[in-house]
Amino acid sequence: MYFDSLAAALQMDGHGAFVWSAYFITIGVVALMVYAPRRREQRFLRQLEGQIRRSEGGNPPGASKEV
């Protein structure tokens, strides 16, 4: 490791606030890029499952299927 201690790594000779904030913002954006579509996919499948259940529940067995 280049730095002697954790404090030196955090401070980075006065540039720590700039460097670490840039990395944390990037981590946030990357997490959102990966998490948001996965959540949308899960939510959509759950919604669709609910719709299918409701439509199946609304039609008693043997009832004619009108379009």
């Binding site: 280049y2 730095f3 790594a9 980075m12 540039h15 700039f18 460097v19 840039a22």
Partner: peptide, 16 residues
Amino acid sequence: LLFTAPDFRQGNSYRI
């Protein structure tokens, strides 16, 4: 962030 040397002109800010 931790295993490269700083830039001789920009110091540690170059790690961005």
